[in-house]
Simulated scan of single mutants.
Amino acid sequence: MTHYRISEAAALVGVSDDTLRRWVADGLLTVSKDEAGRQVVPGRELAARAQAIAAAVPDRSHVRRSARNRFVGLVTKVEIAGLMAQVELQCGPHRVVSLMSAEAAREMRLEVGSRGVAVVKATTVIVETEQDAS
Rank of each mutant, 00 (worst) to 15 (best):
A118T: 11
G27C: 04
V41N: 11
R5F: 08
T19H: 08
R49N: 14
V96F: 11
Q39E: 14
E103C: 05
Q39D: 14
W23G: 05
A118F: 01
R68D: 04
E103H: 14
A81Y: 02
A85P: 07
A25D: 14
L110Q: 07
S134D: 15
E130Y: 06
S134F: 12
A36R: 15
K121I: 07
A122R: 10
L110V: 09
V125L: 15
M84L: 10
V40A: 15
R68P: 12
T30C: 08
D18T: 10
S32V: 12
M84H: 01
T2Q: 04
R106I: 09
V125K: 13
G92H: 03
E130C: 06
S61M: 02
Q90T: 02
H94A: 08
Q39V: 02
R21C: 04
I53M: 13
L20S: 13
S16H: 08
R106L: 12
G73S: 04
V15K: 01
R109T: 06
K121G: 14
V117M: 02
L12R: 11
R22L: 06
Q90F: 03
I6E: 11
G113R: 07
T19I: 00
A47G: 10
T123M: 13
T19G: 05
A105P: 00
H94S: 06
V119W: 10
E107Y: 04
L46R: 02
E35P: 01
G73N: 04
T19K: 04
M1H: 09
